[in-house]
Design a protein around this nucleic acid. Structure first.
Lengths: 213, 213
DNA sequence: TAAATTATGTAGCCCATGCTACAATTAAAA
DNA sequence: TTTTAATTGTAGCATGGGCTACATAATTTA
């Protein structure tokens, strides 16, 4: 969830800055701490853990995103775990410190509502993919969603697996198939996307009408 | 999401009442309408549809709940479908009509933030169940979550299937097993829960230490 | 540059759950 | 009632994708 630039100051006004190392825990679901965080730099991973240690990544947050460890304003604590990816700087605010700002500036409240709503939509789409997509659609969708300038960088197959909800081996297989078909190229933690359109076709379960040559 | 009682008036102030028949569509994902709805009576089903017509129910809303068809305040429209279950009365507000109220009463904004946050947590837990639970855990969890006075009423196996993300046949099988074990009794669209503790044990993948006789 | 670590490829088995099909029951409509 | 429709039970096959296991390749550390 991205926060509008001119709202940053609210965080700086009432929050304190914190720095985290790669993979350092920011929040565990059994914790009782409450706070609202703004990502200044680095990356943050929101994930679930099963009884037997399995992990599911539900959201990756980058610079400008906010997140809360309690359900923003409610008593209930978020049933998620949060950790840093790479060196990461955050600003943390007490929940209570925010209340006066809400009163002073309804725009801030509205911004929050927008951000949480987006999070809802994101989760909804996750469920859609979980329930409706097969392994090819899941991987293809992941690639399209995480493409930057024709590349998907810095993901291992293992990491992709926890995001799309599949086995590492299955992810590897799908990616191999895609690169055999020439839709992507793989170079150690880097996937180059050659054929965007075909990936889209896979997600939408269409056959490509025009050969892409 | 349940709305605090003294906030009802905001809806009545700026909204108009609408009545829906059983299974009548309230909102389709391809629509462009925006609104915030309050459930006065009846029940509302929020669901997804796949390309080949499969349905997934992600939320059931009852009296006092609110929901929005656009992401509350954002431009993006919610990627969901919404329909009435049984005769249902709603109050609909224009999104824009709400802005002045946010300014006037920050409590309303905070209430909204709480409600959407809860929705987020709900979706998060859905994902947890989708990814981590097997068929027995899914059905047992469903029963516990929808129990009212020892009963789960008015769900067909088919409906349960769209909620827990399983096949109707599989749901029937699991329920048959549970009733064979005596944990529940089934009487046509009514499930009587005899052994709460054992259902919990199934969800948590524990063995019952004490026999429940 | 050797050794250790991390990432990826591939084979093959296995099992949970989906799916089709049909029977049996119950409820609703005619 | 009788008929029709909706719900639930059961069988059995089909299969997607998980899992273990190990090989190969790339990267990092020593």
């Amino acid at each position: 969830m991205k926060l509008d630039k001119d709202l940053y100051r609210y965080f700086y006004n009432c929050g304190t800055s914190k720095r985290y190392r790669d993979q350092e825990t920011i929040y565990l679901e059994e914790e009782k701490s409450r706070g609202i965080y703004l990502v200044i730099s680095g990356k943050v991973r929101v994930f679930l853990i099963s009884l037997d240690g399995g992990e599911v990544t539900i959201e990756l947050l980058e610079q400008g995103s906010i997140f809360g460890t309690s359900s923003m304003v409610t008593d209930s604590l978020r049933p998620v775990n949060i950790e840093a990816i790479g060196s990461t700087e955050l600003v943390v605010c007490d929940l209570e410190s925010f209340y006066p700002y809400f009163k002073e500036s309804p725009e801030l409240a509205i911004a929050f509502i927008q951000l949480i709503s987006k999070s809802c939509d994101h989760l909804t789409n996750l469920i859609r993919k979980d329930r409706f997509y097969d392994r090819n659609q899941k991987v293809a969708a992941f690639l399209l969603e995480n493409e930057k300038e024709g590349k998907v960088a810095n993901f291992t197959h293992e990491q992709i697996a926890t995001i799309v909800g599949m086995n590492r081996v299955t992810v590897s297989r799908v990616l191999k198939t895609l690169s055999d078909k020439g839709l992507v190229e793989q170079k150690h933690k880097l996937i180059i996307i050659n054929d965007n359109a075909s990936l889209k076709a896979i997600v939408e379960k269409r056959r490509m009408s025009q050969p892409t040559v």
